[in-house]
Design a protein around this nucleic acid. Structure first.
Length: 853
RNA sequence: GCGGACGUGGCGAAAUGGCAGACGCAGCAGACUUAAAAUCUGCUCCUCGAAUGAGGGUGAGGGUUCGAGUCCCUCCGUCCGCACCA
């Protein structure tokens, strides 16, 4: 019995693809294009099966479209800047550039072993100056257009590492690496004006009909458009005023206080002469920004002693507080509190004993008796206690009050967004240098284009905390390009999301001396199918959408959306194991005893934990190399496609991959040791077929249609099941008729061609074994013959009162009357009807007869 | 709190409103073998029954329909995203 020799076969076909440059994409406007892209990896060390699931799907899509006649672009690259390289440098004394290059080499070799159909000539790594020089140019263009600007912003500051931390790097108020309490600091940061496109980014979501609804919703929430009003409150006895933003201007007459953010200009000004207020603000800053901190933080306020004048009733005064729950980043950094109709305001009012005036009367409530208890009333109702608004609905009152505010010049209807501009400065070495120079005389000066790229120096020292660029003896010291005064370079680098916001454009002309050739981008873009994890639903995918618009504004291209189709695949999970001490164990350290109990290598009991996403820290990882060594790339690929729907999480099990390996060998035997002699390649099926052979031929053509449809709809697990169904049927073909060989050949060739995009090496080997000279990768996708796929006989279910009672085999498309008669004549049915005529009979052609007795 | 998704055998899962459980994993029985592995064959939702078969079954309850896993309402549970957003 022969076994499929994947080692020989996979190496052979990979070599063949390389020699023939089978997957090199050529710009050819005469042909329809298809751009498939998987989110490019961070070169962290080694590929894990989670990566490989993603790339296997992309490869299937790429090879499938190639077979369908598209000019396919399917590139791969490396998102190569980032913290882990720097941490490796700090921990192990290896330079980030070397660490990254070594990891890329390892991971590229792993990808090549998987046989993915990438155009390797277009490979990019974002840490190369030939890549990042172009984004330095983009930044200068953004600067010229006002799309980039410098602003003081509040950041998470790690006092030990001397660096800014992203929100995700702050865990329970402490730096994830140092464990130091994170401070809020005001730092001058470069920002990109993404908010300029808030409305456009929101509106265009509607056009992204090949994106998951979930991702579009997440972006919609992230942009967070809300309509409301700005209202100006004069301050009693002062010249200045406070502007608040509200979505509920209809409740203005229920106001009982104003609250300022601790970072509000007025709050800071007052703190200069008020030590207690200064201390209150300082305390607010010490509170972390993490979810836990926010949730547990008590709502606290500081009474300033200032009163504000109600804009619609000069006689009314409300106290002004500084409150810890008011965000400077949203709206105007100041709110008015209406306790009766906002839960948070209600809690605050109860605590500080402020008046609670209801102004929205719920339906069926009495204006005299209605009172707010512990719960604010936030729904619709009739306005009361509100002067000229009395009697209006909430919606009408919003309109009326908006008009009045505008007439009086004390406010206007406006729109607020949750989206904030994107802060791109990072106090890190391993990133793209921000190409500006600080001149004591000229101020901030862009690096002249001729001086690009600003390259990272290689001779850096990681021995001390903080950004090595800052401490470098010479790098930052330059002459001002305009006045020649001694100046300093910007030592911050870009957020690494900068690189991933345009890499898909670089792939269109990866070796161009400019960022990308306009023609190439206009031809290949947008990406037709983008595939990656849902964890990028907002940041990367939103930044990329912004970049397209910003680049368009700077004249780079004329397109808005980068990704026409998006698919977010599930994660690969694995059982976790812990010993009694609570230490995590690798799966290979665990053995299961005869009684089903688990133990470690020392014989101590092991507790099986929950299924979790594979991660190094929980040790529930499966090494890709081991899998490929043992079973080959194709087996791993088919397992990743077959076991779960692609959008759902997949559990990696040893028995699962074993099963696929058995299937691979069954397929190989089916081809290499056919039960019936096969006629030569190219022999068509002819002559009259026995019913059994006709059924197999029908199954063959049905399978083509079904698998094609399944792949189009990303139902890969079902496509695999269909192919297995067909190959199972072919295994059962042992009939020794003249036509049998030709029918078997047609079936085997179909299985081979359908498997081509999934298990490309095995399929090539099978295709060759079937006697074909050309490569399967060059053979067009099979087309189902609708006539051959059609059933001549159909099985029709017969229901009585909704219960299945019998089935009926009839010729296809039999007349409804005949079907009904045949059904009613069945003994099981006559028995149930007991001689009575049915009250009603529904006949669905070729499917069912439903009898109501 | 807001928003979303999901709930089907021992497990992963199928099922344009039309025969629930395709395809696979695990399991059981058998064949081959001195034996094991590999391979092959058969069985495997539950209850009753020797069997043809009968009844029940898609988180719970209700509704629409000739017909509901699928559509609608209420509830329960799980997972995910966002969250002091005014």
């Amino acid at each position: 019995m022969s076994r499929y020799n994947f080692r020989e076969s996979e190496a052979k076909w990979q070599q063949r693809w390389r020699e023939r440059q089978s997957f090199a994409a050529r710009h050819d406007p005469a042909r329809p294009k298809y751009y498939v892209l998987e989110m490019f990896p961070y070169p962290s060390g080694k590929l894990h099966v989670g990566h490989v699931r993603n790339y296997t799907m992309g490869d299937l899509v790429a090879r499938y479209h190639r077979a369908r006649g598209y000019n396919v672009l399917h590139p791969m690259g490396w998102d190569a800047f980032g913290l882990p390289a720097e941490n490796a440098a700090i921990a192990g004394g290896i330079h980030p550039a070397i660490w990254t290059a070594e990891n890329i080499a390892t991971m590229r070799a792993q990808l090549e072993r998987m046989g993915f159909a990438y155009d390797w000539a277009r490979e990019i790594a974002t840490c190369h100056p030939e890549y990042y020089r172009h984004e330095q140019k983009m930044f200068l263009d953004f600067l010229a257009k006002g799309l980039a600007y410098r602003k003081e912003s509040w950041v998470n500051w790690d006092p030990v590492d001397h660096t800014v931390l992203a929100n995700e790097q702050v865990i329970e108020g402490r730096g994830w690496r140092t464990g130091a309490l994170v401070e809020k600091r005001l730092l001058a940061q470069w920002n990109l004006r993404i908010t300029k496109y808030s409305d456009e980014l929101l509106d265009a979501l509607k056009s992204l009909d090949r994106w998951p609804e979930r991702v579009r919703l997440m972006q919609e929430h992230w942009i967070g458009r809300s309509e409301g009003a700005r209202v100006t409150w004069a301050l009693d006895g002062r010249q200045d005023s406070i502007e608040v933003f509200t979505t509920r201007p209809d409740t203005l007459f229920g106001a009982s206080f104003l609250a300022l953010s601790p970072h509000h200009k007025l709050a800071e000004a007052l703190a200069k002469d008020d030590a207690a207020l200064a201390e209150f603000i300082a305390e607010c800053d010490r509170t972390g920004t993490s979810e836990e901190a926010i949730e547990t933080a008590e709502k606290r306020g500081y009474r300033t002693g200032i009163d504000a004048v109600h804009p619609l009733d000069q006689a009314r005064r409300v106290p002004v507080y500084v409150a810890n729950f008011v965000l400077m980043e949203y709206g105007t950094g100041a709110i008015f509190g209406c306790p009766a109709h906002d839960q948070r305001d209600l809690d605050f009012a109860r605590k500080y004993e402020l008046p609670i005036v209801p102004v929205v009367l719920p339906p069926k409530e009495n204006p005299q008796s209605f009172a707010v208890g512990d719960t604010a009333y936030v729904d619709d109702g009739t306005i009361f206690n509100s002067s000229f608004l009395d009697g209006l609905s909430v919606a009408d009152a919003k309109r009326a009050v908006g008009e009045r505010l505008e007439t009086l010049g004390v406010g206007e209807r406006t729109i607020a967004y949750r989206l904030r501009d994107w802060g791109v400065s990072r106090q890190r070495y391993w990133g793209c240098p921000i190409p500006v120079i600080h001149c004591p005389d000229c101020g901030i000066v862009p690096v002249p284009e001729d001086d690009l790229p600003v390259e990272l120096p290689m001779d850096v020292d990681f021995a001390m905390a903080g950004n090595p660029l800052d401490r470098h003896p010479t790098w930052k010291h330059v002459a001002c390009p305009y006045c020649n005064s001694p100046s300093t370079r910007e030592t911050d680098t870009f957020d690494t999301f900068f690189e991933s916001s345009w890499y898909f454009l670089r792939f269109c002309s990866a070796r161009a001396p400019i960022a990308f050739e306009r023609d190439a981008a206009q031809y290949w873009m947008p990406v037709d199918q983008y595939i990656g994890g849902v964890e990028h639903a907002v940041l990367h995918l939103l930044y990329s959408r912004f970049f397209m618009r910003a680049l368009k504004e700077c004249g780079y291209l004329d397109l808005d959306e980068p990704f026409g189709g998006l698919f977010t695949q599930g994660m690969v999970c694995h059982q976790t194991y812990q010993n009694e001490a609570g230490d995590w164990l690798f799966p290979e350290e665990v053995t299961s005893g005869a009684d089903g109990g688990l133990s470690d290598e020392t014989g101590h009991p092991v507790i099986a934990g929950r299924l979790e996403k594979m991660s190094k820290s929980k040790k529930n990882v499966v090494g890709l190399d081991t899998i490929v060594d043992t079973y080959g790339a194709d087996t791993a690929r088919l397992y990743l496609l077959s076991d779960s729907p692609p959008e759902r999480d997949l559990e990696w099990t040893d028995t699962g991959i074993e099963g696929i390996w058995r299937y691979v060998n069954r397929l190989w035997r089916l081809i290499s040791e056919p039960a019936v002699a096969l006629p030569p390649a190219g022999t068509a099926v002819s002559g009259s077929l026995s019913p059994a052979l006709a059924a197999i031929r029908r199954a063959t053509h049905k399978t083509i249609a079904a698998v094609t449809d399944d792949i189009d709809k990303f139902r890969f697990n079902r496509a695999v099941a269909r192919i297995r169904e067909l190959s199972n049927a072919l295994e059962g073909l042992t009939e020794d008729a003249t036509e049998a060989g030709a029918v078997l050949r047609e079936g085997l060739e179909t299985v081979t061609r359908l498997l081509g995009p999934m298990m490309p090496h095995l399929a090539e080997e099978m295709w060759q074994e079937l006697g074909h000279g050309e490569m399967l990768g060059d053979v067009p996708w099979p087309v189902a013959d609708a006539d051959l796929a059609r059933d001549e006989q159909v099985t029709i279910a017969v229901q009585v009162n909704g219960k299945l009672r019998a089935t009926l085999d009839l010729p296809r498309d039999a007349a409804a009357r005949e079907v009904e008669e045949a059904a009613l004549a069945l003994p099981q049915i006559t028995r149930l009807l007991d001689g009575k005529a049915p009250r009603k009979v529904v006949v669905v052609p070729n499917r069912i007869v439903s009898v109501v007795a």
